[in-house]
Design a protein around this nucleic acid. Structure first.
Lengths: 216, 216
DNA sequence: CGTCTTCTTGAATTCCTTCAATACATGTGG
DNA sequence: CCACATGTATTGAAGGAATTCAAGAAGACG
């Protein structure tokens, strides 16, 4: 993302920004606040989520290296619609709102980039939406596992997910109860679709999972 | 939307476009096709939806006067992610893709408009997402009714929705079975939240519905 | 070693879907 | 205008999927 900027714009953004490291579990921003910065994730993994009245987290979005966070609220003039916290040690570039908006104004390549970004997120959101509404929890879980693979990749074995999430976090991603995730993972293990070892998930039969995610 | 364009851009768009009327039920574009135009809804009401393998429709988006349709696929270089059909007699302006993209390049006010548009849709999609994942069908139905009111407004009585949808369409919007919609509407009627008369829905107790939509 | 959090399992219950049958509405051709 | 076909709406009953509550097991960590 930053690489595609003109040298001028990039320099301006980088010099106006502050670098920050976040420990696992540390929060970057909080739902409901007025945003004053956008955040460029240099390295690490983060989750963006809303918390409902019962205190349960619904994960709206996952971010990996190269992703931009917190810009939606700034573009729309809204308060932040979700909170962000680090899933592992992460490194972000904190960019003041003004610098972001000014670059948007002056650098048309950048504004095209941002349109592209929004477009992608919207496509994902729509797809997710259609799935959530109609699919069984089992199919949604299978899909989430494949999305995690796609987004964050595998370890050198080509099967084990590099993200490690708690069962509760997976539940928040799928939109179900923690217990249901546990039971379904267990069933999928019995069917030879995957293997679990603590929080490490190994996707053994990816085609099987794909079929699963297309069910019902 | 069109009003905020520079006079030049607007003239260019309007002269390059074709006006088209759609009868109720008529389709404007079909999921999976390569998009060649964007569509500006001058007047009427339309639904944008995907059809799943079982033939059930999930409504992704509703459009009213002033809304732009089909631009997501063009911006992203994708095939169309949904089909569009008219809920009532509608009037659209059919804008060639090239004209749309060129205006985006040359008119920075327009590109800001489009960013604004995408931002709004993304906010809605995220909100909808969080709701679908966690709420009961009853709460989602109540929310959908309020969204319909917000989007399309009431008849002069201030209570009756101006959109008329079949029970099946409402089900496609909520993400549930038609029978469930019927039963829940019936229950809400008994509770004095609304009244039904064929496809006309009269929202009597909007606060009650709002509470309902925040449940569970 | 004990405390805390996360994970797992069981059982009961609720919510929703599905299937099947019936009513109602609408429009068509005779 | 009627008879019929078609599509939509409604209701009942049975079954299944997922949630909730409760309690115990397994790790993680000071």
């Amino acid at each position: 993302m930053l690489n595609q900027l003109s040298a001028d714009s990039r320099k301006q953004i980088v010099t106006a920004s502050v670098s920050r490291k976040l420990a696992k579990g540390e929060m970057l921003f909080l739902e409901g606040k007025i945003p004053s910065h956008v955040f460029f994730l240099v390295d690490g993994k983060m989750k963006l989520y809303t918390t409902d009245l019962q205190g349960r987290e619904q994960i709206i979005h996952l971010a990996g290296p190269g992703d931009l966070m917190g810009y939606r609220a700034i573009l729309g003039g809204d308060s932040l619609s979700c909170s962000a916290s680090a899933l592992e040690l992460s490194h972000v570039l904190v960019v003041p709102k003004e610098v972001f908006l000014q670059t948007l104004d002056t650098d048309s390549a950048f504004s095209h980039q941002v349109i592209q970004l929004l477009t992608n997120e919207l496509r994902h959101a729509e797809h997710h939406l259609a799935g959530l509404a109609r699919k069984s929890v089992r199919a949604r879980l299978a899909e989430v596992l494949l999305i995690l693979a796609d987004k964050f990749g595998f370890e050198p074995d080509g099967e084990t997910l590099t993200v490690t999430l708690s069962r509760e976090e997976i539940a928040g991603l799928v939109g179900t109860a923690t217990e249901t995730v546990i039971r379904l993972l267990h069933a999928m293990k019995d069917e030879g679709l995957l293997a679990t070892s603590g929080r490490k998930l190994r996707l053994i039969d990816k085609d099987g999972l794909r079929k699963c995610s297309e069910d019902h």
